[in-house]
Design a protein around this nucleic acid. Sequence first.
RNA 1: CGGGGUGUAGCGCAGCCUGGUAGCGCAUCUGCUUUGGGAGCAGAGGGCCGGGAGUUCAAAUCUCUCCACCCCGACCA
Length: 437
Amino acid sequence: MRLSNYFLPTLKEDPAEAQIVSHRLMLRAGLVKQASAGIYSWLPLGLKVLRKVEQIVREEQDSAGAQELLMPTIQAAELWQESGRYDGYGKEMLRIIDRHDREMLYGPTNEELITDIFRQSVRSYKDLSKILYHIQWKFRDEVRPRFGVMRGREFLMKDAYSFDLDYESARESYNRMFVSYLRTFARMGLQAIPMQADTGPIGGDLSHEFIILADTGESDVFCHKDYLGFDALAEVADYQGDLGPVVNKWTSLYAATDEKHDPGQAAELGDNLISARGIEVGHIFYFGTKYSKAMGATITGPEGDQLHPEMGSYGIGVSRLVGAIIEAYHDDDGIVWPDSVAPFSVGVLNLRTGDIDCDNACADIVNKLEAAGQDVLYDDRDERAGAKFATMDLIGLPWQAIMGPRGLKNGVIELKHRATGEREELSIESALSKLCA
RNA sequence: CGGGGUGUAGCGCAGCCUGGUAGCGCAUCUGCUUUGGGAGCAGAGGGCCGGGAGUUCAAAUCUCUCCACCCCGACCA
């Protein structure tokens, strides 16, 4: 992609409304644009990142045996009246009246809809267990949206729902999601800590929040410091096998959100206790038959009896993750994307656009990189070198190939690694092989 | 929902107290010079001063009102 032709409206100065670093950088790097309070447009560069995050979530859901579907954003009020939540949910739910005076709503979550789909389609215990998920926009009319995409009113969420015959089987579904969450966040470079959590209005008695420690987090959290050394990707994720040991390991140490915090128990940790702020990036619940009972979802069991399936629900804030990743990966110059979610893998900087040799050398390396499957952003703008360095640092691509007449005269270009700041001069060939490694 | 604050050019802001032809920096456009860390000079374009109502000879400025946005708290899959 040529930057001269790319829609990338970056800002030199900090927008006044953005208080936390991820919000500032998302606006400055041209990732998003605010449409109303808590509602954002995703611009091309931001959308690329959002899609990458989404894809990692999808791959890990699929590996764990969950199946993707897509439910609508707009739902009929009847289902919510059935579950009893239509009145209970309050003003956070955006209610809509259609032309036939029928009450509709913009879904804040999808338990009712998925339970309706399930009850109409599944009759036998032989069809269980099932985990269904979708990645869809949600709307919650928050009293006070803030921090950019971290607490938006409209946000992209992955929500999964499990249906099982009995408690033991439901626990296995819970464990699958638990492990897949560990892997999902780790693949994005995030150290997410599963913490005992309150179940809130969803109900149920088993719940974990996945928390990223960050000063700008909205929750007060407490955990054993050894969690910081845990490596989720080192865990073998064989979803056919027993996941109990992995879950046990990750829940063996103290970790709790504010609501579940037990000061007495925490005090026993002594110096090992971390008391910090955290960003909630995922939340999983087991809630038994709460919805299947309320909505009359039944299946025929092995004995021919009618049973309500045991359910759980599992959410990941996809759009929030983009902000959370930036909170974890940035420096004074801008964003520092982890490779797995970077919008482009390499930025090529032409330091002297208009110089034939320089233009040709850049075009050549861009072609070769793209032929090798790299996603390249080529800064061919008619700008001075300084502006190109600043832009590239701001948008945080993992690698910068810096090409100017000075180096090319000697047959070398400069490779800069954004995360470490290390630069080295290499021949074009060695630079190519390093970037494509 | 309680408390506080801000709306003036695409972005960041001054002007408001004390009413009198709307300004600065960046960005944009043109020209020349420059060219390895957000260039210099010269010129140009761009504003219902958030909306409405009022006071006044005269309102960005004073009054009332509505709206939007931000911050603190409460709330929050």
